[in-house]
Design a protein around this nucleic acid. Structure first.
Lengths: 351, 351
DNA sequence: CTGTTAGCGCGTTCAT
DNA sequence: ATGAACGCGCTAACAG
């Protein structure tokens, strides 16, 4: 006696004395058979424990899986706990849900073979952030075969979704510089060519502009510096590799623990997470914000707006970024480059 | 001329003058052919743009997809922005990654047919939180066919992962009651039978204990009250449906805006998100914590520990919960009920 | 409106 | 060590 298999469409058809096509139609094309027969088939199916067409077989046959993969540059573990990435996923999920698709999470940090293997099941891809190795992109399905949307980085020949990083950073820096700082400084995110959680030496090599959006953010800062007669090269910079409290804290501590006459009194940070770490560690040290130290962030995450002091930052709508990417990948809107506007939020950390 | 298809294993075999089985073996069973031939096949494959076996066909044939589905009770949009759910997913992703599996996100809030359809592709399921309708569970593959692990709720006959909600809440309440409050109160999360973002009337029907873990948390609070000669029935309770700042804020505002002689001086909250909302709104109103108002949370999320005042709370290791659930579903550890320990964190919000 | 048929791309016997 | 043949479960043509 054979081990009891899952009931198949064919089993059901045989049981009911109809053809497999009719059963298939009962599930997929209601207009192809009489409502009465359809109802009969559906109720018998339930009774016999048939749950509907098998997704694996169906996707092999149709070529579509109703699965969209989001490929994240960072590890899933990190991305899921990052407010900005989570919001992006949120927006993606919202649109996919509404259109009967589901979300497969992949990471550029996975074993190459793994990403490659699982990816061939997806109907389309949203790639978020530049992969550590460009290789991954070659591993993905051939361009033109299945839709791919790049978010927050440029990918040759593919539609992209960006925010206006450079003008936004120009604007926030200009706001901050209205009150002339004595010692301004910048805390960057993933800006250096080689991993670095420390101060950036003046001769240190940076990532090219097409490899990281933070390069554009820095350009915005620099333009504002120059307009305020501050030589950008004279502004000390630090770098942080991962946008988490744990990684930020030591670098921030190093900055705040500088002697009074060296400690910056204005810190332009490339993310709210960095800025929040500054706020937390400054509080612990009895430094007053904004009196002793002014801080700006980037992103506009909820955590920075619901606590005191409220962060001065650039709000980017990551949820909307996700929605747009999802709609593009589903073909619901034209697959053309999009640039989203940001909004300057003036909080208490740099009034 | 046919539209250019994706290269298939068969194409490649024909091109190289070997059989399809040999190509398949080159990818899946290195020991079944000479290293030299294997290398030849692999390099030719790359050259001809063959990316390896198609996931759809492979999963149909083998019956396995290397995809594990996490089914979330709440919407994906909500879950992805909830620190606790994100941490769980983080832990799940970590283990799946390490074992060459990927993560498919489903929500119990999706259209039934959708969940059902996509779900048949997964090799196993992690179900987090009780579905709005129990129906979903019937929709999932027959028990015994594919592994299913329930997290934070009980599912008949299925392995579960829980934390010790009741003793944890007993412990934190006992700690709080060491300093006798004049007007203690509780802010619950999804406790009432019918949705309610307001004070709970004394005759209001609650969800049964097997439908929500917050029932166990409340039982812990009540036990501590009773031991401190406080009649649990005399303690006012509020309820909140969704663990977000936006939903919490109006309810918390209602509480904090009570006249001085009615306003609670101790708030036991069922989540850190609720407690943080209390802290934020209290600050805005000039209420001092802990002098005027003591607050406790639950979860131990990072946000509550990195800001001042540090939250007094129960830390649960959601990441580990996710890891365990993932290991169970992959068969890496016995599928038996697990109860994780929590840790009392005494912060500044209720010293 | 319903049934027949031919694969979707692959993995796996069982031969050789 | 290698190849031929079968079928995983389903859907899209087409035929009736």
């Amino acid at each position: 006696m054979p081990t009891s298999r899952r009931t198949t469409l064919k089993d059901l058809a045989r049981e009911l004395g109809v053809s497999t096509a009719t059963v298939s139609n009962a599930f997929n094309r209601p207009d192809q058979l009489s409502p009465k027969l359809r109802e009969h088939i559906l109720s018998e199916a339930r009774r016999l424990g048939y749950r509907g067409p098998d997704a694996k077989a169906r996707s092999l046959r149709t070529g579509r899986s109703r699965i969209i993969a989001v490929v994240l540059a960072e590890s899933l573990t990190y991305s899921l706990n990052d407010a900005v990435a989570s919001e992006l996923l949120s927006g993606v999920a919202e649109v996919l849900d509404a259109h009967g698709h589901t979300l497969l999470l992949l990471s550029g940090r996975q074993h190459e073979a793994q990403v490659n293997g699982s990816s061939s099941i997806a109907d389309g891809f949203i790639v978020y952030g530049l992969m550590p190795s460009l290789m991954l992109l070659e591993e993905l399905p051939l361009p033109g075969q299945r839709p791919l949307v790049a978010v927050d980085f440029d990918l040759e020949g593919q539609p992209t979704v960006h925010v206006d990083d450079e003008p936004a950073c120009y604007a926030i820096a200009r706001h901050a510089l209205k009150t002339p700082p004595r010692r301004p400084a910048v805390i960057n995110l993933r800006l250096t060519k080689h991993p670095c959680n420390a101060r950036i030496a003046s001769d240190q090599e940076l990532l090219p502009a097409d490899r990281t959006i933070t390069r554009a953010r820095l350009a915005g800062f620099h333009q504002a510096f120059a307009e305020h007669a501050i030589d950008p090269a004279s502004v000390p910079m630090w770098n942080i590799e991962e946008n988490t409290h744990e990684v930020c804290a030591p670098v921030v501590a190093e900055i705040l623990d500088l002697p009074d006459e060296e400690r910056p009194d204005l810190l332009l940070c490339m993310s709210d997470r960095i800025a929040l770490t500054v706020v937390t560690l400054a509080e612990q040290r009895g430094l007053r914000i904004p009196e002793d130290l002014r801080v700006t962030g980037f992103d506009g995450i909820a955590e920075g707006q619901y606590r005191a002091p409220r962060l001065t930052t650039v709000r980017q709508d990551s949820v909307e970024k996700g929605r747009i990417a999802a709609r593009m990948v589903l073909g619901l809107e034209p697959a053309e480059p999009r640039l989203l506007r940001t909004e300057l939020l003036i909080g208490d950390s740099c009034p």
